[in-house]
């Protein structure tokens, strides 16, 4: 199962990670702001994550860590 972890207080709300997820499960948390004053990114429906790591690759602020233990690999871009 792949797991995506966000270091939320490092997030600058740039939204780049939301554009690359093949499963469209990375979205902005409109209900809260972090210590920097931004709406942080988050993953909804964690179980749909395929562990491709795209969200972590595009994040300029090293907010995202993807644990990919035995997850299916994505064949789209890698």
């Amino acid at each position: 199962m792949a797991k995506v972890i966000f270091d939320e207080d490092r997030c600058k709300g740039c939204e780049l990670c939301t554009t690359v997820c093949p499963k469209k499960i990375v979205v902005m948390a409109e209900d809260r702001i972090n210590i920097k004053g931004f709406h942080p990114a988050q993953v909804i429906e964690q179980d749909k994550c395929i562990g491709c790591g795209f969200c972590a690759i595009i994040c300029p602020d090293l907010v995202i860590e993807v644990e990919n233990k035995g997850a299916k690999t994505c064949r789209k871009e890698c």
Binding site: G13, C14, L16, P60, D61, L62, E65, V66
Partner: peptide, 25 residues
């Protein structure tokens, strides 16, 4: 996929979405 060892564990000053951060990584 984790933070590379050669990068200090701190927040960088770049503007939101500035790709300098990706290049650092």
């Amino acid at each position: 996929m984790a933070r590379p060892k050669a990068l200090v564990d701190m927040s960088q000053h770049y503007c939101p979405g500035c790709t300098h951060g990706i290049i650092h990584r």
